[in-house]
Design a protein around this nucleic acid. Structure first.
Lengths: 203, 203, 203, 203
DNA sequence: CATGAATGAGATTTCATTCAT
DNA sequence: GATGAATGAAATCTCATTCAT
């Protein structure tokens, strides 16, 4: 049952996310963190010299697969409307298997007052909206989505709906099927801009 | 320039919102609050015996006109699709004149770890979504909106887009015309479910 | 036995000086400070929001009478050589009655790494040397001290000797008569530059 | 580029002095020390089991040549007044080539609260003053210095001026010619007790 | 109606030091 | 000879809250 240093560091992140889920992003204390990991507070600070570093590591964990998901969605999808759905569904599946992590949507919507953290949060959101925007632009060029709409606006609407559902899911204690319901909600937005459809997607 | 007790209480709320805007919801201290109001910390506690009470008062301030707006929208609108737009636009106008208050969307998305506050936040969100839902149901009954969609889902999508834009507006330092852009985004959702249209609204 | 807030603040300073004397300037903890004053640590921080503020207050206490002593020396002395001796003797009498305060010569010789404190320390030293320098210049103009020497250099030498003796006195547990011996040492410097003498001083 | 154990130990001392210069005697941490030497903290403790040991080693480094300088001054000087100047000038030359080491005058003026260290500091100062005292006594016996003055007092005055100038030099960022100016200051003291002069020295 | 005095609990962070490998 | 892992103790500081006046 050997655990190396880097695994321990990751466990701390996992625990931190649990604490965020349980008590909110502002109530993660290094003391409780150390207690749950059976290590001393000092060790937490060896791993993450400032608490900021810990929070940033949590945010990195939260956005770890973002770019991979974007690339996979691009590769694996026949057209860009498919890609959008594929991309968002990847997240939804991931979250359904790892519900507590959705507590981090708090962290990225929140104004923490710490520049470094706020910037990273903005970055994550921007990046994701941008992924969607890129798919939409291609979909417009290939005739799947109406060229009359502003790609960025659609991307923002899609992402807002996605985030809104994830937060609601958490606040209702995961009391509804996230993927299914979010898909429906997303489709409400897409339907109004999609022109032609084919392949796997049927609504 | 007499100010009575109840006005002073309101000033404290206003200041609290400023602090939330400036430093985030976690960094509102009774000390800073008293400093900015030129009163003693003790007075803050005379007004709001627990800090929770203060936060709850802030949430009440945030949702003060919700029901009025719902009723006005109902009265003043020719049909229920109009009512939805009227309702959301009331908020948007209000926020454009009082930008810092949008910082409170944090507070209502956030899991604070304090039951009372989390409940109140959920209540506010639920209430607003419910207003939208009621309009949608009537719109479905009167043939303005497709009966095939679930009213609640549409309401949630609309509200998510609305909230998402408000948060973005704040995080970009109010750097775009909130009402205009949010209207466009909302319309993306509505378009996919509205069947017939008439009167003031034209998209 | 009423003690008001400002007296309590002063007691804290006095205690801080005791701690500096006992444990050195770097070993003054707010905890010990609160223990000795029978108040909570929180109260210490109510009085001095940052520990820097406490240290600065200690430095102010240390230099409280500097300017008064300068003015008195100027007024009460027949000539400027007298004034120098009068000025330094005022300090020496004060220190003989309040020996622990000489521990603060540490604080003003020390590079603390905190800009604000280092600046204040430099300021105090500069100010005192400057007082001496002013007396010397007048003494040169009135023919009591050789015009061929640089006033500032003499001032520095005098002050160094004065400080050196105070530190030595402390490190030997006040084991010799401070005023008497320091006077002799100061005179070693003065003798080499004084041209004419009269009045109370006789060496 | 092999470096042996004893050289590494010396590098640590050198680095420690840098840290004292940069951050003050209280802010020398084993962590920073190990970082700057590219070794582990553990190694620091292999070299110096207690931090006291390190500080003592620094003090030894500071006083390494004291006795040699005394002996050389004795040998190389024609008379004892010369010897005093020779002795102090040796230090001044050394310091002008190695300015950061003057930061250690802090360490030896400071009451650290640790008996061992305070004793060693006192010892160093005592030893140096004693060197001067011995020269002075001989000078008195050989008719170069007035027998009417107490040798120890003169020694203390000389050393105080010397130390005072070194500290000032450091606090002004080495902004004046140390040796030149300190020589002048020292001479202020000497002039008042020297009776006859010859050889290299001319003032 | 208003305040000042007072505090306990807890948070983040630093540091010297030990020990097994 | 060298290191990484681990820690207890202490320091500074913040905050909500109480109480007597």
């Amino acid at each position: 049952m050997e655990v190396n240093a880097s695994q321990k560091k990751e466990f701390v992140i996992i625990t931190a996310i649990d604490l965020i889920y349980e008590f909110g992003i502002n109530n993660v204390s290094t003391k409780e963190l150390s207690r749950r990991n059976n290590i001393s507070e000092s060790m937490i600070f060896k791993m993450y010299p400032k608490k900021n570093d810990l929070i940033l590591a949590v945010l990195n964990h939260f956005s770890l697969y973002d770019n991979d998901m974007f690339l996979t969605a691009k590769e694996k999808s026949e057209n860009s409307v498919d890609a959008i759905l594929f991309y968002l569904n990847k997240f939804l599946s991931y979250y359904e298997n790892y519900p507590t992590i959705t507590a981090l949507f708090q962290a990225v919507s929140l104004h923490s007052g710490i520049v470094q953290i706020d910037n990273r949060a903005r970055e994550i959101n921007f990046n994701r909206v941008n992924h969607l925007k890129q798919f939409i632009i291609v979909a417009q060029e290939t005739g799947y989505i109406d060229k009359g709409v502003e790609a960025e606006l659609v991307a923002e609407a899609l992402y807002s709906v996605f985030v809104g559902m994830c937060i609601k899911w958490g606040s209702l204690n995961y009391g509804f099927p996230l993927k299914e319901r979010t898909d429906d909600a997303i489709w409400l937005v897409l339907k109004s801009v999609v022109i032609k459809l084919e392949g796997s997607v049927e609504k």
